[in-house]
């Protein structure tokens, strides 16, 4: 397969950056998208050029490290996958492929296609946890009965890998799907109830501080999310936040 890649190159956070074209040949349909980029980087290194910087880690769709806005969509044209799970067979010989970093004020570019997603970490630190006493006599989690439906729904929310595709896809760069998944996974369980009100208020406050946009319910995040996190989580967060704002 012969492709024409158009890749965002940016030397550092303060560089202006631009799209650069890279023709590439002999790409197999069974390669993953990241393998294709590895091949490009090998060629660039051989020529003595600076390789394209991009985030990746587990390469099996569970770590949330890989990103990339491919041909106008987060994680490329396929659904329910991360970029590392995207195969080159989804493209045709001779295609032009645009590869850009996540675009959001809260996700500044570090280099080329790598962005700083530590804003998500700061949101998590504000309340995305349950405080558990680890003195050695911790209660077994299974000792607390939880309805299967609630457990399933909490688990679905917990599958969020924090990749940031929701922010990247959103026309408003809103982080609502991410934050709502993190709020929901705990709000649905008894262990999460104790800190529920502070959690939602603090996480939303940090989300706003970080400069993410406001949700306008377009639903783009749900469609592009590699873990197919549901919009219902956002409704749940809105509910939790409203309740917390009135009570506390």
């Amino acid at each position: 397969m012969k492709l024409n890649l158009k890749i965002w190159r940016q030397k550092g956070p303060n560089d202006k950056g631009s799209m650069v074209s890279y023709p590439i040949e002999n790409i197999d349909g069974d390669m993953s998208f990241l393998e294709m980029l590895d091949i490009l980087n090998d060629q660039l290194v051989e020529k003595g050029d600076d390789p394209v910087a991009f985030d990746h880690d587990c390469r099996e769709g569970i770590c949330g490290m890989c990103s990339l806005y491919i041909n106008g969509e987060a994680h490329g044209p396929d659904r329910g996958i991360t970029t590392c799970q995207l195969h080159m067979r989804k493209f045709n010989d001779g295609d032009t492929i645009y590869i850009e970093p996540w675009r959001a004020k809260a996700f500044p570019v570090i280099k080329d296609l790598m962005v700083d997603r530590s804003a998500f970490d700061r949101i998590m630190a504000a309340g995305g946890f349950v405080s558990v006493n680890t003195s050695g006599n911790t209660q077994d989690a299974n000792a607390i009965p939880i309805p299967k439906d609630d457990a399933d729904e909490a688990f679905n929310a917990a599958t969020c890998i924090g990749c940031g595709a929701c922010v990247a896809s959103c026309v408003n760069s809103s982080a609502m799907l991410f934050v709502s998944a993190k709020v929901s996974q705990l709000a649905l369980l008894p262990q999460g109830q104790i800190e529920a009100m502070d959690r939602v208020k603090n996480m939303v406050a940090v989300m706003d501080e970080e400069g993410f946009g406001n949700c306008s319910n377009t639903g783009a995040c749900e469609v592009e999310c590699p873990k197919e996190i549901s919009l219902e989580n956002i409704a749940r967060m809105n509910r939790e936040f409203l309740k917390a704002s009135f009570v506390k």
Partner: peptide, 14 residues
């Protein structure tokens, strides 16, 4: 919230 726009975007897909 998005100071730098995408060069290529397909919002109609989602």
């Amino acid at each position: 919230a998005r100071p730098v726009k995408y060069a290529h975007t397909r919002p109609q897909e989602n």
